[in-house]
Amino acid sequence: MNSTNNQPDRPGDQSAQGSDDRARRIIAEVATAGRIPGISVAVAGPDGILYSGAQGYADLATRRLSTVQDQYLWFSMTKIATATAAMRLHADGVLDVEAPIGTYLPGYRPHAKHGHPTTRQLLTHTAGLANPLPIRWVRAENQPEDPALLERIVAKHGTPTRAVGTRAAYSNIGYLLAARVIEAVTGQPVQDCVRDTVLTPLAMNGTDYAYRAGLPRSVGYVRIPRVVVPALRWMLPPGIVGPRVDGHTSLRPFVVSGAGYGGLLGTVTDAAKLAAAHAAGPSYAGLGLTSADTEQMRTITSTGKPFDHGIGWFRKPIDAQRTPAFVEHYGTGAGFWNAMRIYPDTGIAMVAMTNTTTAWNFDGLFTELYTCFY
């Protein structure tokens, strides 16, 4: 399998080379065990990217090797960017995350019994909202977005179905509503707000809400038996399911409808910049958030199942006592399975992006990589 790394020079060249070599071996072992077609990984610290590398194939049909420049669908890792933008608006006094969202969305329908959520509760998944399967909230790259889709989704699922402010339960609907609040207070699309407050300040030049021309793309794959492919074609919108390659069903380029909950796509190093800004705090200039702000976001305050939640970040309850302490977020869907993790006590951030739909041992990867770089 291939391996690339594009990190800056680090002190102690010999020691750094040993860490890089070990990282490549760890990544290769995890990719092989998980039968992952291609994987891109980045590790960052307070001073920037410590390591970036790739293994396997971004495109099985052409045998194009994976690189750290490949664009991947972020899916729900997007929520970290959306939450960051919301907290920046809060810090600037533009948005009060403690106010009921009807303050900004006059047409919002709270529940007479369950309550009226705040933006903070949307961001911490404590707004009492349902979480319908978003499998058809995507469209082929060349298809225009249905402007009524999100309106229909929010109208159907945007009212709490259980008590607001109690136990956390993960919900994409909460982030669709948070995006609407951001748009209401800024008067601009949520995409523009995130670009202005997150992507541009962190120089995330390979990430946006559409594929960037001139940058390579990782092809998404679903590892299913051939007889199941017709069912996959029925489940996904037209034009997405592609040909079979090496026991995988490929997916043609598509994008997510619903920028606030899952619309970003881009590179692993960009994702690591965002993660590191939350792990390292004020040493990453430009976000307009203090160390207290980022600490507030990554502090787990709401218990739930399967995750306990902070603002954007989450952690499995079983991991609460592990050392070193961490919080994380995943980005999973058809064709891609990604994860980011931050270790706030040491400022280390890690991101791995893969072009498989099947869960793999990201915990083992991050745990082993941490010993390479700290």
Results as ranks from 00 to 15, higher is better:
residue 6 N to K: 02
residue 8 P to T: 11
residue 8 P to M: 10
residue 8 P to N: 13
residue 13 D to N: 01
residue 16 A to F: 05
residue 17 Q to M: 12
residue 30 V to T: 03
residue 31 A to Q: 13
residue 31 A to T: 09
residue 32 T to Y: 05
residue 32 T to C: 02
residue 34 G to E: 06
residue 37 P to R: 01
residue 39 I to Y: 01
residue 39 I to C: 07
residue 44 A to F: 02
residue 46 P to T: 14
residue 47 D to N: 09
residue 49 I to E: 15
residue 50 L to H: 11
residue 52 S to W: 06
residue 52 S to G: 12
residue 55 Q to F: 04
residue 56 G to N: 07
residue 74 W to M: 02
residue 77 M to T: 12
residue 80 I to G: 01
residue 82 T to D: 05
residue 84 T to S: 12
residue 88 R to V: 15
residue 103 T to A: 14
residue 103 T to F: 09
residue 116 H to E: 15
residue 117 P to E: 09
residue 118 T to I: 07
residue 119 T to Y: 06
residue 121 Q to F: 03
residue 122 L to K: 13
residue 123 L to S: 05
residue 125 H to S: 12
residue 126 T to K: 01
residue 128 G to K: 01
residue 132 P to F: 09
residue 134 P to R: 06
residue 137 W to H: 13
residue 140 A to Q: 07
residue 141 E to Y: 07
residue 147 P to N: 10
residue 148 A to T: 14
residue 150 L to C: 11
residue 151 E to D: 15
residue 151 E to S: 10
residue 154 V to T: 13
residue 156 K to M: 11
residue 156 K to Q: 15
residue 157 H to Q: 14
residue 161 T to Y: 00
residue 162 R to T: 13
residue 163 A to F: 02
residue 165 G to Q: 10
residue 167 R to T: 15
residue 171 S to G: 09
residue 175 Y to K: 08
residue 175 Y to L: 13
residue 179 A to I: 09
residue 185 V to S: 08
residue 187 G to V: 05
residue 187 G to P: 00
residue 189 P to T: 12
residue 195 R to F: 04
residue 196 D to F: 02
residue 196 D to V: 05
residue 201 P to M: 08
residue 204 M to W: 11
residue 208 D to E: 14
residue 211 Y to L: 10
residue 218 S to Y: 01
residue 221 Y to K: 05
residue 223 R to I: 06
residue 223 R to D: 15
residue 228 V to H: 08
residue 228 V to D: 15
residue 235 M to Y: 12
residue 239 G to L: 07
residue 240 I to Y: 04
residue 241 V to K: 03
residue 241 V to T: 08
residue 242 G to C: 10
residue 243 P to I: 11
residue 244 R to E: 15
residue 244 R to S: 14
residue 245 V to C: 08
residue 245 V to S: 06
residue 250 S to G: 08
residue 258 G to Y: 06
residue 262 G to E: 12
residue 262 G to H: 01
residue 262 G to Y: 02
residue 264 L to Q: 06
residue 264 L to D: 08
residue 266 G to I: 05
residue 268 V to A: 06
residue 270 D to A: 02
residue 273 K to Y: 12
residue 274 L to W: 06
residue 275 A to Y: 05
residue 276 A to K: 04
residue 277 A to F: 07
residue 277 A to D: 11
residue 278 H to N: 13
residue 280 A to G: 15
residue 287 L to K: 10
residue 291 S to M: 08
residue 293 D to S: 11
residue 294 T to E: 09
residue 297 M to T: 09
residue 302 S to R: 13
residue 303 T to Y: 04
residue 309 H to G: 01
residue 310 G to P: 00
residue 312 G to S: 11
residue 315 R to D: 03
residue 316 K to W: 04
residue 317 P to L: 01
residue 317 P to M: 04
residue 321 Q to L: 03
residue 322 R to M: 05
residue 325 A to F: 03
residue 326 F to P: 00
residue 326 F to G: 00
residue 331 G to K: 00
residue 331 G to W: 01
residue 334 A to T: 12
residue 336 F to V: 03
residue 336 F to G: 03
residue 339 A to H: 06
residue 339 A to S: 12
residue 343 Y to M: 14
residue 344 P to A: 11
residue 345 D to P: 00
residue 346 T to F: 03
residue 348 I to K: 07
residue 348 I to D: 11
residue 348 I to A: 12
residue 349 A to I: 07
residue 354 T to V: 05
residue 360 W to H: 10
residue 361 N to K: 00
residue 363 D to V: 00
residue 365 L to R: 00
residue 367 T to Y: 00
residue 367 T to W: 00
residue 368 E to S: 03
residue 370 Y to V: 02
residue 370 Y to S: 00
residue 372 C to E: 10
